[in-house]
Design a protein around this nucleic acid. Structure first.
Length: 424
RNA sequence: GUGGCUGUAGCUCAAUGGCAGAGUGCUUGACUGUGGAUCAAGAUGUUGCGGGUUCGACCCCCGUCAGCCACCCCA
């Protein structure tokens, strides 16, 4: 074991068990996305660094991305996010596409961060966007998709919550507090974002040290504690009303502390968290006013969110909701009694496969006990024994590994018997 | 990028600076044509890697790699 070259730091290896989970997540994501009529798409995994540099205020992209020169000396980036690629794809065909666009994607992304639990350098991410719509009901649709996804993976509204705020609503409150300049606003959003990370006293000191007055601090505290603030916003009332109609209101809470770090959000912002004390962010998104302007298109509003594949399994595990997935696609194992019977076993397996049954054949003659043990270990449900006695009598032994029951079956009845057993 | 904790058998973990261990799993047998259960026997280690201190290092020191935790950041 010592001379194995290590996998690249922060990358992930999907052994069959992990791959089964990833495919399970993908299937849930696909089903929910399609249930709202969204189309699957994807962008390149490699992009030039300019694509990300084009977005202002994103120096971090350069620092947190894998960047390397290609043979021509151009700087290539392993995509750290999908939104800029999406923006370009939309801009390139802006006049040919049918709006509103409903697009989703699930693919790999890379970020050069320090790996730890729930954070790797290589991860998969679900991105889903509704583009060309600028109304609270459109925003509500994305939140409903997130909630439906949680339902689909059996996470209840008491286990996860989608917390929502509106940047416009916060802007109004900040103006009331005399926070008017762009820099001040940015600082204030950072302060709000940090509220949960510091204890109250430290946070208050931090606010005052950031150049805000005691009056502003008091005002801010009042805003952040006002769970009813959304009622002053007609858009948010429409938004919550839409969620009610879609049957997911129990998953969604108004939370004035949610502001999200990203610059390009201009309306609704939201993030989903588990309700436990550790409370990790599972997904995040919001409404943006101009998706494609930065890459040369005309302004288009939209709303979307992204969910990584790393945190969700941790949350599922925490609530005991990890699915038990079958790891072996074969339902049947045909044993090989001895060398003389080997080709006979092969022909039986072939007949079963012809009837669309997945079959594993033991690869060589071995002690029958060893073969049963193998069947047990790989999770096969039915084992067929075809020894010399059976061959002479034109029968087979079929054993149900779960019940332990074994029956003799006429060779001509085998397919029917197996199919009947496999019915749920 | 900063700081801290950890790294020993496939896995979970022991071992005052003095012979490298347990549980579990694995292999084989009890069972000559049947898995799980029981019993018995057996195998398995570059103590992450590289240096140093020491008569002697899993243990102490330095470096390095990896994982975890807190920052930073969160697309």
């Amino acid at each position: 074991m010592k001379n194995i070259i290590q996998a690249v730091k922060g990358t992930r290896e999907f052994y069959p068990a992990e791959m089964a989970l990833r495919n399970w997540m993908y299937a849930k994501i696909k089903a929910v996305s399609q249930s709202f009529g969204y189309q699957e798409y994807d962008g390149p995994f490699l992009e030039s660094i300019e694509l990300y540099a084009a977005k202002s205020g994103e120096e971090l992209v350069k620092e947190q991305s894998f960047v390397f020169p290609d043979r021509g000396g151009n700087l290539i980036t392993l995509r750290p996010e999908l939104t800029p690629s999406l923006a370009r794809m939309v801009a390139q065909k802006q006049n040919q596409l049918v709006y509103p666009l409903r697009w989703w994607s699930f693919g790999p992304f890379w970020r050069y961060e320090k790996p730890q639990k729930g954070r790797t350098r290589e991860f998969f991410q679900w991105n889903i966007d509704l583009i060309g719509v600028d109304c609270p009901e459109g925003d509500a649709e994305l939140v409903a998709i997130a909630a439906d996804f949680f339902k689909a993976v059996d996470l209840s509204s008491s286990e996860v919550k989608i917390l929502v705020n509106d940047r416009r609503l916060m802007d109004k409150q900040l103006i009331k507090l005399g926070v008017t300049s762009v820099d001040q606003k940015k600082a204030m959003l950072g302060i709000i974002d940090r509220r949960d990370k510091l204890n109250e006293k430290d946070w208050e000191v931090y606010v005052l040290e950031s150049g805000f007055s005691q009056a502003q601090l008091d005002g801010l505290k009042a805003v952040l504690n006002d769970k009813e603030l959304y009622k002053t916003s007609p858009e948010m009332m429409r938004f919550f009303n839409a969620l009610e109609s879609m049957g997911v209101a129990d998953y969604v809470d108004y939370d004035p502390r949610i502001v999200r770090g990203l610059d390009y959000y201009t309306g609704i912002v939201f993030e989903a968290r588990d309700v436990g004390e550790s409370s990790r962010a599972i997904l995040g998104g919001g409404h943006y006013g101009n998706l494609v302007e930065d890459v040369g298109g005309t302004s288009l509003a939209g709303v979307g969110f992204a969910m990584g594949d790393v945190v969700l399994p941790l949350i599922l595990e925490q609530f005991g909701k990890l699915p038990e997935l079958p790891l072996n696609p074969a339902e049947v194992l045909v044993t090989v009694f001895d060398a003389d019977c080997q080709v006979y076993s092969l022909s039986i397996a072939t007949a079963l496969r012809a009837a669309n049954i997945n079959v594993l054949v033991y690869p060589e003659a071995a002690k029958i006990g060893k073969q049963f043990k193998f069947a047990d270990r790989v999770g096969v449900c039915y084992v067929i024994v075809a020894g010399p006695d059976e061959r002479d009598q034109k029968i087979l032994q079929v054993k149900d590994m779960r019940s332990g029951e074994q029956t003799s079956v006429k060779i001509g009845d085998l397919v029917d018997v197996i199919k009947k057993l496999m019915l749920p």
